[in-house]
Simulated assay, not measured.
Amino acid sequence: MNRREAIAAVGWVLGGTLVSAELLVSCTSKPARVNDLFDEAQVIFLDEVGETILPATSTPGAKAANVGAFMAVMVQDCYKKEDQQVFLDGLKKLDEASEKKFNKGFLKLDTGQRTTLLRELDEEQKAYMASKQPEEPSHYFRMMKELTMLGFFSSEVGATQALRYIETPGKYDGCMDYKKGDRAWAT
């Protein structure tokens, strides 16, 4: 074996070791954490739930407003521990309901299947909320729906593209004409 062959062999061995180590690390690593409660995979999941609730039409949808990250912050910073747990368990329940109904996870469903599933969950939460006691927590899907709406309509995208927005509207006019089909005011 000459010197060139020896260097090439050592290069292959070292290169293989580096590639194998990189593969091992990438295959065993967990999704990056967004905060103490949520990881990136859960935020992506919430973005898709939000986009199904408020899809893009002639205006951007919930995903454009990054509602998944908004929900993660709100649940961690503003919800009681019990409600946080209901919300986190709800992510699993939503995916389980998808598996039960369509034999695949929520993220693998097409738009029609997602809409069908979320409509059923919306009916379930309405029935639950009508009969729940004041001390009981809200239904997880109600929390997701409320946070989607709040996150979208308080975002720049929602306030400026889905609603009418004037940065400095001037005087207050409580009797402004509203024509059918006009967007609501954000300001």
Rank of each mutant, 00 (worst) to 15 (best):
L91S: 15
D83L: 06
M176P: 13
A97D: 13
M176W: 15
E124A: 13
I166E: 12
A97L: 07
F87I: 09
F141H: 09
F152N: 09
D83I: 01
L109A: 14
K100Q: 13
V10R: 14
E120Y: 04
G112P: 05
P55H: 00
E82F: 10
M143F: 05
G90N: 12
K145Y: 01
G170A: 09
F70P: 03
M129Y: 07
A69Q: 11
Y178I: 15
L147K: 03
F45L: 10
S131C: 11
K101N: 14
K100A: 15
F102G: 06
G158Y: 12
L147M: 07
L18G: 08
N35W: 03
Q85W: 04
A32W: 07
I166K: 13
V49T: 01
F106H: 14
K126M: 13
G11D: 02
A130I: 06
C175M: 14
E167L: 00
A62T: 01
G16T: 01
S131V: 09
L14H: 05
L46Q: 00
T168C: 00
G16D: 08
P31I: 03
K179A: 06
T59S: 03
W12R: 11
M74E: 02
D110P: 10
H139S: 07
D122P: 05
R119L: 11
V157S: 08
L88F: 04
F106W: 10
M71R: 02
T115F: 15
T111I: 12
S98A: 15
A56Y: 03
S20V: 12
R183P: 06
G68W: 03
A6N: 00
F38Q: 05
T59C: 02
N103M: 09
T28K: 11
V75D: 03
M1W: 05
G16K: 11
Y140E: 09
M129L: 06
D39R: 09
E136R: 14
A6E: 00
S20T: 09
D122N: 12
A127I: 04
L23G: 10
S131P: 06
G112I: 07
V73G: 08
A162W: 13
V43C: 08
V19D: 05
E5S: 04
P137Y: 05
M149E: 15
